[in-house]
């Protein structure tokens, strides 16, 4: 399974440039993400346990790193809607993915603004907690004030819960891909069954 996951990282998907280079970057990301786990496992366990858990974690990390490299969130949302999933569910996932970088950038601006006003993040724990409050409160309150604007925008675009939408450009889904998905699901259930029994 690990070998399969690592080979998959070499094929980051149709959206990236051709050749081996993007795949090698994804493989390197997977290995660098998994490396600290091996170090901590070695600190906490013997070699046999380290190898057993380390291989499992590396497989998990490599699979997800490949997934992130191969999958565009916007395409995922389109595919979910095309497959009959609720548009609201697709929105939850897509909107969070796009909101995180926006709020992180705002948090950074708040940090700089508060520093310019003389906020110091040094000193004891109480002083740091007060500084954290001064940074976190404006971020959370400004984000909550946005909820109404977002709700209005969703209503204007007809994203009312319970209404089925038609995707503009659904990703192609061939019978072979559908069969492969079912086969993978069955393989997972079989592996789980063998593990439990």
């Amino acid at each position: 399974m690990l070998a399969l996951a690592l080979v998959l990282t070499l094929t980051p998907g149709a959206g990236s440039s051709p050749g081996w280079r993007p795949g090698l970057v994804v493989l390197r990301t997977a290995l660098l993400t998994a490396a600290p786990f091996w170090v901590f496992l070695l600190v906490l366990h013997d070699v046999t346990t380290t190898v057993a858990i380390g291989l499992r974690i590396t497989t998990m990390v490599a699979s997800f790193v490949w997934l992130v490299a191969a999958l565009e969130p916007a395409r995922l949302v389109e595919a979910m809607v095309a497959a009959g999933w609720s548009a609201s569910l697709a929105y939850l996932f897509g909107a969070t993915l796009s909101a995180v970088p926006v709020l992180k950038a705002r948090a950074q601006r708040i940090v700089e603004a508060q520093r310019a006003r003389g906020l110091s993040a040094r000193g004891g724990i109480a002083a740091r907690l007060r500084a954290l409050r001064a940074l976190a409160l404006p971020l959370v309150l400004s984000a909550l004030h946005e909820v109404d604007e977002r709700a209005l925008a969703l209503e204007t675009r007809g994203l009312v819960p319970g209404i089925r939408r038609t995707p503009l450009a659904p990703p192609p889904d061939t019978p072979v891909e559908r069969a492969a998905r079912w086969a993978l699901l069955l393989a997972c259930l079989f592996a789980l069954f063998r593990r439990v029994m």
Binding site: S88, Y91, L92, A95, T96, A99, V100, V102, L103, K104, R106, A107, Q108, I110, V111, L132, L135, A136, L139, V140, A143, L144, E146, V147, D148, R150, A151, L154, L159, P161
Partner: peptide, 18 residues
Amino acid sequence: LALIPVAAAISLALSAAV
């Protein structure tokens, strides 16, 4: 529905303040 992604993003963006 609009609150959920905002609240989730708050959880993930607070790391910058921390």
